[in-house]
Design a protein around this nucleic acid. Sequence first.
DNA 1: CACGTCCTCCTTTTT
DNA 2: GGAGGACGTG
Length: 753
Amino acid sequence: MDYLESLNPPQREAVEHTDGPVMIIAGAGSGKTRVLTYRIAHLIYAKGVDAFNILSLTFTNKAASEMKHRIEALAGLEARNTWMGTFHSVFAKILRVESEKIGYPSNFTIYDTDDSKSLIRSIVKGMHLDDKVYKANTVLSRISGAKNRLISWQAYQDDPFVKADDEAAMKPKMGEIYQRYQERLFKAGAMDFDDLLFNTNILFRDHLDVLNKYQQRFKYIMVDEFQDTNVSQYLITKKLAAVHQNICVVGDDAQSIYAFRGADIQNILNFEKDYPDLFVVKLEQNYRSTKTIVEAANSIIDKNKAQLKKVVWTSNPDGDQIELIKASSDNEEGRIVATTIFEEKNNKKLSNNDFAILYRTNSQSRSIEEALRKMNLTYKIVGGLSFYQRKEIKDLMAYMRFTVNPADEEAFKRVINYPKRGVGDSSVEKMLVAAYEHDIPLWEVVTNAHSFLPGRAGNAVDDFATMIKAFQIDVERKDAFEAANNIAKQSGLLRELYEDKTIEGLNRYENVQELLNAIKEYVDNPENEDKSLGAFLQEIALLTDNDQDKDQTEAITLMTIHSSKGLEFKQVFVVGLEEDLFPSQMMMQSREDLEEERRLFYVATTRAMDKLYFTYALTRYRFGRLLNCEPSRFLEEVDPACIKVNKRMAATREMPGALRKEGLPGSSGFIGIKKKPETRVATTMKVHTPSPDFKPSNTNNLRAEQLVEHPKFGFGKVQKIETEGLNRKATIQFEHFGEKTLLLSFAKLRIID
DNA sequence: CACGTCCTCCTTTTT
DNA sequence: GGAGGACGTG
């Protein structure tokens, strides 16, 4: 097999050792994806395994599609039959076939986080509890944590330790909320993300025939990013592999960054106990990065206590030192990053694709975006507010969801009075209460509205029910596209958006059209056998926006560090290296938390192949205010030999060694109670206070020479207005902030005439 | 019941 | 600096 020749000895071992339990500890940049794809190819071609019998689980959609492409390129179309996907999507598919065995309809809805939170809010309200004590976020993460550890609501309520915990936190009703939450989900024929895994476990526990069917099918199982699996996921895989025992997990404990979602680093540390005859391979040679970058990364991760021993090394050249850039503000940070990219592109003949800008939180993208736009650099944002989270998209999807599954309470609440049809909050509340108290399906209440609602509202609900019934007939007879198209038109949603002639309204209209296009594509794709609307909805519920980056234009990539895992770029900027931002203040409860943040930093640095930049700003807009920032403690932890201070750096304050004020916790690992930095407004910047009567004007008739006021930048004069597709941009000369180019659909401007 | 305005809270990461 | 909820008015 000549393709094996291109592998180094441990890689080759990992590929060739196909039978029995295998754990591959793969350092960053050690060719992990390569090994996985080769392994699958090897199974199919050298061992004659039917691709149909291989299951390959990944963590993100992005990783799954990347693998799919690579395996197809390597092994041809045959490999396409391999079942490859995220845990959630693979088991959602299985549940769609089997869910009736555990009492759920096969067209069950998948609730996203917003749906879940909204349901929790409604439950807390219904129990007359204080929604400040039982915040949707807190409650949901508590419930989610329980489900990820396979603790049912019954077990939750029976567990004295959990109870003591909740009582200590002054939240004794948590167990009851959990129970009601599950009951309401069940009644709505809905599962949240965690249920997809939880219920798969239930299914496999209670229906051995079903388990056996899939055990027989999946003779070879591979789990990528194993360090990120939670207990629930691990148990599913373990059960599936119990017959053939051909389980291969690939991971790197140093890159475990999903503890907040229940990922348990112990899974990887304990794997050996579960499989005593485990074969372990370590991939330690890094092929991706320069020596400097590998050494810097090692120096970061060395500080962590909980880790498997391994030595990542490289034979690549030394490369440049890491550039440390200090900026005086987040905007300046953006500007420096943009100019640096511009220069590097010219000097080294690089393309936009070679650059990535990584940040800790999605909200940090804004200042960077502005700077890039100003320099005419094309960029794309991965993640963030995805297409499917926009209001207009969720509205249309809610119509489709309710049509397919008229028990879906959250979808119902979204559409019953949108567009307005005279059914107010109190009527909606009455119907929900009726369904709950009489223990009848919501749909029964909706179709018998007059028994529950007086006059006008009752009539309106009647009309609504008639409309939905017509949609249901469409869904049965027609494919997803025709049905959806009809729903968009008949519901009045499309008309409502069409009548909104503002730029935002146009955008929303376009977005809905785009969703319809996506459905058309889904229907036209011969790979999708089930062309019903229900199938499409299921597919889409687990999609973030990764599949949409079809526009393969050359662009600089902006994303959070979390979504950067598995990717590589020639030059990487890690921005916003400020204390409380990275490491995140929300995260810092324990040593483990600090270690996870450090692993995150490790992930960020190891994305870079040739050149790495660290940047931080001394002032930054956060929480809508201008804050003073301290440089991140992480900067001190990097081997100083790897760093060089950039000349562009603002001249205030001194550099490494003196990064930190005395008395703050340093690299000793000590975490004290965090002192909140004073949040005073920097005196060097003039911050505009808008006039008391400030109200953004409609900017449709804005023209050059006009005077305007902006809430942040103050007064300015319009230089020119450009139209680019649907976007209109205005270049404005501000008194104190210089020239800015603003996208008019977002800019809040007051026109002074 | 609809609409406008004010208030409050939340700002971590993903399926 | 955004979203969602509460509250008051028409």
